[in-house]
Amino acid sequence: MTQTHLGDLVELYALGALDSDEVAFVNEHAAQCTVCTAALGEAERTITLLDDETIPQIEPPARLAQRIAASSRVVTPLRRRAPAPYLSFAALAASLALIVGGSAVTRDYLGLRAGAAQDDAALPVIANSHFLHATFTSKQADAPVAKVLWGRTTRWLYVIVDSGSCNCHVIMTDAGGEHDLGTPLGRGATSTLYVPNAPGARGVELRNGSTVLSSANLK
């Protein structure tokens, strides 16, 4: 598309009738063209008037404000034309630090990011996801501190154990029963296990043999 101005794409953008690559083109063009930027503003105003007259107002959940406030503090501006993940790794690190409050698990997790093959696979996924997290509840006095992170929609799992030599197995439960996911890989003072696809996961446990050390529910 080499046109001087956006033309009909202005209205199609405001209506939501463009595909995602066309939306990207409009955004790119608007960043350089004040004429089309003003036209987009006019079209957007008309759509908002339509929305005001046709869409019932619904109060959002209070937690959304908290999510936006937290994310806005760690999202970094993109450089022009740079393909960047939704959150930068630095922002991800900051998010994780906020989530687990600077615990030993967090520090070690952040320290072992580079190099480990499974972390190389896990971090881009985590960085581009909305994820939830839970601390394992200890069932035994010697259970290591551990956390599990999981994608809200894609259902990957990432288990972090505050022990570099965890002799435990991670057991996942879903509608089909229990699945032994193996032993977390130790690096330094922590061990991690990344599961790219665990769609029906309901909970995870750390077990040593048949002894349940700790467990976490994925709600």
Binding site: A31, G41, E44, T48, V75, L78
Partner: peptide
Amino acid sequence: VWQRPQAFVPERGNLRSFLSV
């Protein structure tokens, strides 16, 4: 939007409409 520093400029006019679209 917050990731794109040039996403909203004064020429766009109305912030609410911009965000809504």
